Amino acid sequence: MKAACRGWGMVEFLIAIALGLLVTLLGSGLLIASGSNFRNHSDNAWLGDGGRYALQVMAQAIRQGAYSNWDSELAPPAFTPSVDGLDAASISRSTDGISKPLPPVANGSDVLALRFSGSGVGANGDGSVVNCGGFGVAGEARGWSIFYVGADAGGEPELRCKYRSASGWGGDAIVRGVDSFQVLYGIDTDTPADGVPNTYLNATAVRALDAWARVCSVKLALLLHGERNTRADTVDMRFDLFGAAYSEAHGGDQGVRVVEGSLPPAQRLRARRMFSMTVALRNRDG
């Protein structure tokens, strides 16, 4: 007698569907997690490249700051100080220098302005001295390299370089995704001056002491974020751009401490990276 052939029953069929859905769900979760990890890794790589490039551009401008062209007929004492700045402010691309501050962008980010002598004749000099935009500065002029944070057309904060070329004032973006850009100035308080900073102050304190001519180094700190929420963790991190001790002692200095919990929810779980550097001026004023 031949055995009867049997197919799947309803219960078996439902169990098979449930197991298939479970496997699909697990696979989808792994795929989503893998994609998120890839985007987070990509954002971190971009942050590393962008942050290093921004510091390189600013460091070059700072080292060039206070450069005096002794072949020029203009004597250095006739110049204004080579370093200037603003706390918790922004500026326009088209206004003269930093003469017209605007409300701050990105957690009270600062403004750093550097001036230096040019070299050569003609509209762009001999090309040996350039501003942060890459334009040459002539010997009879004084160049500007100004760094500040502004918002692009989509509202994303970006670090910009402002300069004056032969055609007028202009500005270019250096890196996007700025949470905070902070600057401290190393002041040489010794008499006679020895070119070594004794204390670091923000722009407001330097201006109150009328000590711009005594600035001999600049301390930079930059906090950048990625384009989207890609972190798997949900921990609210804290970033002290000049260290926790400075943040605790200078609570009124906006932007030196950034806490993710105070940011909009759409920004809290983005990849973040902090960059810092201290750069000495090649020359001193006065």
Rank of each mutant, 00 (worst) to 15 (best):
Met1Asp: 12
Ala3Phe: 12
Cys5Asn: 10
Leu14Ser: 10
Ile17Glu: 08
Leu21Asn: 11
Leu21Cys: 15
Val23Tyr: 13
Leu25His: 14
Gly27Glu: 13
Leu31His: 13
Ile32His: 14
Ile32Ala: 14
Ala45Ser: 15
Val57Gln: 13
Val57Ile: 15
Ala59Leu: 12
Asn69Gln: 06
Trp70Asp: 10
Pro76Glu: 02
Pro76Val: 03
Pro77Glu: 03
Pro77Arg: 08
Val83Gly: 02
Asp84Gln: 15
Asp84Glu: 12
Ala88Asp: 07
Ala89Cys: 06
Ser94Tyr: 08
Ile98Tyr: 02
Pro104Thr: 02
Phe116Tyr: 10
Gly118Phe: 01
Gly125Asn: 05
Val130Ser: 00
Asn131Ile: 00
Cys132Ser: 08
Gly136His: 09
Val137Met: 09
Gly143Cys: 04
Gly143Tyr: 02
Gly143Glu: 00
Ser145Asn: 08
Ala153Lys: 12
Gly154Phe: 05
Glu156Met: 14
Glu158Arg: 15
Ala166Ser: 15
Gly168His: 05
Ala173Thr: 08
Ile174Thr: 11
Gln182Glu: 13
Gln182Gly: 05
Gln182Asp: 06
Val183Arg: 07
Thr189Tyr: 11
Thr191Tyr: 15
Pro197Lys: 14
Leu201Pro: 05
Thr204Arg: 13
Ala211Gln: 04
Leu224Ile: 01
His225Arg: 15
Glu227Phe: 05
Arg228Leu: 09
Arg231Val: 00
Asp233Trp: 05
Val235Arg: 08
Asp236Gln: 03
Phe239Tyr: 15
Asp240Val: 07
Gly243Asp: 03
Tyr246Pro: 09
Ser247Pro: 06
His250Gly: 07
His250Ile: 07
Gln254Asn: 14
Gly255Asn: 00
Val256Thr: 14
Val256Lys: 08
Val256Leu: 09
Glu260Pro: 03
Gln267Lys: 09
Ala271Phe: 04
Arg272His: 08
Arg272Cys: 00
Thr278Gln: 08
Asn283Ser: 07
Asp285Lys: 04
Gly286Lys: 11
